[in-house]
Amino acid sequence: MTLLPTEPLQITEPFSGRNDTRPNLVGLSREALQATLVEAGLEPFRARQVWQWIYWHGVTDFGRMSNIAKKTQQRLADLFVIERPGIVTEQRSVDGTRKWLLRFADGNEAETVNIPEADRGSVCVSSQVGCTLTCTFCHTGTQPLVRNLTPAEIVGQFMVARDSYGEWPTPTETTRMLSNIVMMGMGEPLYNFDNVATALRIVMDEQGIALSRRRITLSTSGVVPMIAKVGDVLDVNLAVSLHAVNDDIRNTLVPINRKWPIAELLAACAAYPGAKNSRRITFEYAMLKGINDSDADARELVRLLTPIHAKVNLIPFNPWPGAPYECSSNNRIHRFAEIVNEGGLSAPIRTPRGRDIHAACGQLKSASARSKGQKVLL
């Protein structure tokens, strides 16, 4: 079936930046929120109340915080804001996928996607505006890194998705289909680890959004020295963008491999907490015609990953304008999967989602560009 392109369903007026000078309470850790409120002359226990209203109920208006006195509500409103990223466009695919182009306070933009399934929804969250890794099969890699996203901008993406689906709990309904987060959007999460970690701790806090760490997956292209830290600090599910079974090919597809080659990457994965128990590390493998899809490649993939408690996600390459690769044929992908499965590894073939709105894996990009002379701290 040929998917027809869809039109954006929501467009807001562009703006150059945020004029409101009040601090945003979204993105502060629980401890930082309490310190901020106490500094403003409010009682320490207010932090717990405000936290629950922001992250459990999803309110953006202090006037809706019904267990806080009107006078205190007004003081909070005078001093602070509860702010999400702004929606520039919202697009909906024929398969139910939604993609948002989000604008932040400084005018920069990034994309966020929700991929709905029968029993869950996985929100694909960005960690940077642009990317520094230049992976040749990825559209985001063609956009130079502009800057890291803040904790507020990272957790705010999930909050925008909740807003769009109307999925904040009510007194009678707490079921939520947006149940998973995958840090697989624009950027390399491990090059913005501190901000990503703060955001994910907020997401996992049981008094707020309250997602289990088992419902969060962080994907990396292979920043080897940081992998152990992910396990120690967050202990979330780990996904690795592998995409090749030898260094020569991976050096081209994922240039960070020149710094940390496959052997070093797999050693770090083998040592990841939980890698030898029921939680498997997921290795992402984009199927590229004539590049990494031979029977020999499949057998080598089995050899490399057998010592690790792993599974492989085979991803049919998702094209984008000017892409230098083609997707492997359907028969080739299934033969590759058959070899890997016969070798004892699980190798599901991911069904492409949101291709008609360029929301599929490897297709995200924004028009934001770094200002001349601007430095990015990694």
Rank of each mutant, 00 (worst) to 15 (best):
V376C: 00
S16N: 07
M177W: 13
R279S: 04
A77V: 14
V155Q: 12
D247F: 05
E83D: 10
K259V: 12
T217I: 08
N313I: 03
R303H: 14
N331L: 14
R279K: 05
E206Q: 10
K289R: 14
A263S: 13
S29G: 08
N330R: 15
F283L: 01
M159A: 13
V129C: 01
P14C: 02
E284Y: 09
G185P: 08
V129D: 03
I315D: 05
R92G: 09
K365A: 15
Q157F: 01
T217W: 07
E264T: 06
R213Q: 05
T351D: 11
S122Y: 11
E188D: 10
P307F: 02
F62E: 02
L301W: 05
A310I: 06
R215D: 02
S126R: 10
E31S: 14
L200G: 08
I154Y: 02
F317Y: 13
R215M: 01
G121C: 12
I82A: 00
V88H: 01
I54K: 01
P316L: 08
R280Q: 14
N180P: 07
K311H: 12
S294A: 11
V230K: 00
L265F: 05
C138R: 02
P44I: 04
I357D: 01
L9S: 15
S164Q: 07
L304A: 04
R279F: 02
V129W: 01
T36W: 00
F15V: 07
L190M: 13
V94L: 14
I216S: 11
I281Q: 04
N292K: 01
I227A: 03
W320C: 06
S212G: 12
V240W: 03
